[in-house]
C-alpha cells in the first residue's frame, strides 16, 4: 500500500548543534492508526512539529503523498489536520466562529460546512455553547473545539498530540469512535499519547520513542516478540524498554 506520510532519516530540533531527535524513520499509511508513545521529553512534540512543517529538519525529509512541504506547500497543509496538546483558541472568537474560520481557511463549501459543523456540535454535545467565548469553556471543552476543527476539514491525515487530556469519558468515546470511522474510511492517523491502555485498544501500530530515537516499533504482537515478552501488555513493554535504555 502506498504511504501517506513518510518520515525518512529525520534529525531535528530547535538548534542545529543540539538535535532533539535523531535518524528517525517511519511512515503512516491510509487505513491505519499509529500510536506515538514516549516519556515526557522523549521528542514526541518535536517530531510532530517537524511533520507539520513548523520547523525544518536538520537532516532527512518528510513527505506527504510523496511531496515535501517545499514541493507543494498548499497540498501539504491542505491534507492534514492537527489536534494540539494544549488548545490554541482565540479568546475573542466564539466556538462557531472558530469552526467557520477553519472551514473558510481549508476551502470548505459553506453549505457543507453547516451540515458538518452542526453534526459535530451535536456529537460532542456542544450545540448549547455554539456562541460562547472560550473564556467560559473548561479545559475539556477547549480541547473539543480543537478536535471538532480537525474533524471538520476531513483531510486524509490526522496528527493528534495527546488528544484526550481533559476530555470527559463521553468526549473520549466520541473522539475515538470518530477516529476509528475515519481510519476505516481510509484516513491515516498519527496519535501521540500517554494513555497506553487506550492506545493498545485502538492503535494498529506503535512507535516507541525514547531520547529522540525510535527504540521499538510494530504491532503489539511484533513488539512482544522483539522485547521477548509474550503476552505482555503495552504498559509492561513500555516500562521494560525505557528501563533498559536508562540503564545504559
Amino acid at each position: 500500500m502506498t504511504e501517506l506520510l513518510n518520515v525518512d532519516g529525520l534529525t531535528g530540533g530547535y538548534q542545529r548543534n543540539k538535535p532533539v531527535i535523531r535518524e528517525m524513520n517511519f511512515s503512516v499509511k491510509p487505513y491505519e492508526m499509529v500510536g506515538l508513545i514516549g516519556l515526557n521529553g522523549a521528542g514526541k512534540s518535536t517530531t510532530i512539529k517537524h511533520i507539520l512543517g513548523l520547523i525544518e529538519p536538520i537532516e532527512g525529509e518528510i513527505r506527504l503523498n510523496g511531496k515535501t512541504i517545499f514541493d507543494d506547500m498548499h497540498m501539504f497543509r491542505q491534507n492534514m489536520a492537527y489536534i494540539p496538546e494544549t488548545p490554541l483558541l482565540y479568546e475573542e472568537m466564539t466556538l462557531w466562529e472558530h469552526l467557520e474560520i477553519t472551514a473558510m481557511a481549508y476551502g470548505l463549501e459553506q453549505a457543507e460546512f453547516h451540515v458538518r459543523a452542526e453534526h459535530l456540535l451535536k456529537e460532542f454535545r456542544m450545540t448549547k455553547m455554539k456562541n460562547w467565548f472560550p473564556s467560559h469553556f473548561s479545559k475539556g471543552m477547549r480541547q473539543k473545539v480543537m478536535i471538532m476543527s480537525a474533524f471538520l476539514i476531513e483531510p486524509p491525515l490526522y496528527i493528534a498530540d495527546e488528544p484526550f487530556v481533559g476530555l470527559d469519558p463521553i468526549g473520549i468515546k466520541s473522539y475515538l469512535d470518530r477516529m476509528i470511522q475515519l481510519r476505516d474510511d481510509g484516513c491515516g492517523i498519527l496519535m501521540s499519547t500517554h494513555i497506553l491502555a487506550t492506545a493498545e485498544k485502538y492503535c494498529d501500530r506503535f512507535l516507541f520513542l525514547h531520547n529522540g530515537t525510535i527504540v521499538l516499533e510494530g504491532t503489539l504482537d511484533e513488539m512482544r516478540a522483539q522485547a521477548n515478552m509474550p503476552g505482555a501488555d503495552l504498559d509492561e513493554i513500555y516500562v521494560e524498554v525505557t528501563k533498559e535504555e536508562s540503564d545504559e
Partner: peptide, 13 residues
C-alpha cells in the same frame, strides 16, 4: 496578533 497561535500557520493559505 496571531503570532503566538500555531493554527493559522497551518492554514493552506
Amino acid at each position: 496578533h496571531y503570532d503566538t497561535k500555531q493554527m493559522p500557520d497551518l492554514f493552506p493559505l
